[in-house]
């Protein structure tokens, strides 16, 4: 399968710290692909490096046929990559509508697309004119994801969308991501293995800034020993 995103020996420093030590992996086109790892393993740094928010010191990042390693963040975004950061990046002083309008290249909405978003996340329609700071954590996450899909994107980078969310909202998110994953490629960074297992097609595991495992999620999900070794999951967590 063709890779929509390819990272080849990517090294990233944050200040004096060498965080990514040669990360290499491919993200095949279509579906949800997951990057798993413990806290501080380098998951967020990987996404931010792809997005150009932190610069790779060495290595190459290729999106489709574009070498985006040294590109500016806005130029990377305009190639068709959306980013949902861990803190969601919601503009609290703006309304839900304004948040969405900003993410639309023309400033106008495609009615069919908007209707689809409302069907996935009805809360967005309900709180359309409300200021975003007043939304709950789950609703803010829905807004962050809605903003990422208000335009047709080729790739969406999503950083720990389940963090701090209630289990019922996480179940809704699984359904939403399944639907979004039918039209675009998602690279999901997660610590919640159950969430990742329910969605992921491909999986990579990162540890200390290096990819230590690549493969299919189904294989990892079926191998409890591998999960324990790679992710330190306990028997109960399986």
């Amino acid at each position: 399968m063709t890779a929509i995103l390819r990272l080849d020996d990517v090294h990233t420093d944050i200040g004096q710290y060498h965080v990514l030590h040669g990360v290499s992996f491919d993200v095949p086109e279509g579906g949800v692909h997951v990057l798993l790892g413990r806290n501080g393993a380098g998951k967020t740094t990987t996404l931010r490096t792809v997005m150009g928010l932190w610069r790779a010191r060495k290595g190459a990042i290729v999106f489709r046929h574009h070498d985006i390693t040294a590109m500016r963040t806005p130029d990377i975004a305009r190639l068709g990559i959306a980013y949902v950061p861990e803190n969601m990046g919601i503009f609290g002083g703006l309304t839900v509508e304004e948040n969405m309008r900003l993410a639309s290249a023309s400033g106008e909405f495609d009615k069919d697309r908007l209707a689809r978003i409302f069907s996935i996340f009805p809360a967005m329609q309900k709180f359309w004119t409300n200021q975003a700071y007043a939304l709950s954590g789950g609703q803010k996450q829905m807004l962050a994801i809605s903003r990422a899909i208000i335009e047709k994107r080729d790739l969406i980078l999503i950083d720990e969308p389940t963090k701090g969310l209630a289990p019922s909202i996480i179940r809704n998110m699984i359904d939403a991501f399944r639907e979004i994953g039918t039209e675009t490629t998602i690279l999901l960074v997660e610590q919640n293995f159950h969430f990742a297992k329910a969605l992921g097609r491909g999986v990579g595991v990162i540890e200390d800034g290096r990819i230590v495992h690549k493969g299919q999620m189904a294989d990892l999900a079926a191998d409890a020993d591998l999960q324990t070794r790679l992710l330190s999951l306990t028997a109960e967590a399986h």
Binding site: L53, R72, A82, G89, F91
Partner: peptide, 14 residues
């Protein structure tokens, strides 16, 4: 207004 709140996210939106 968005830039005042979160410059990085404005850039990430293109």
């Amino acid at each position: 207004r968005a830039g005042v709140e979160n410059r990085e996210m404005v850039e990430a939106l293109g």
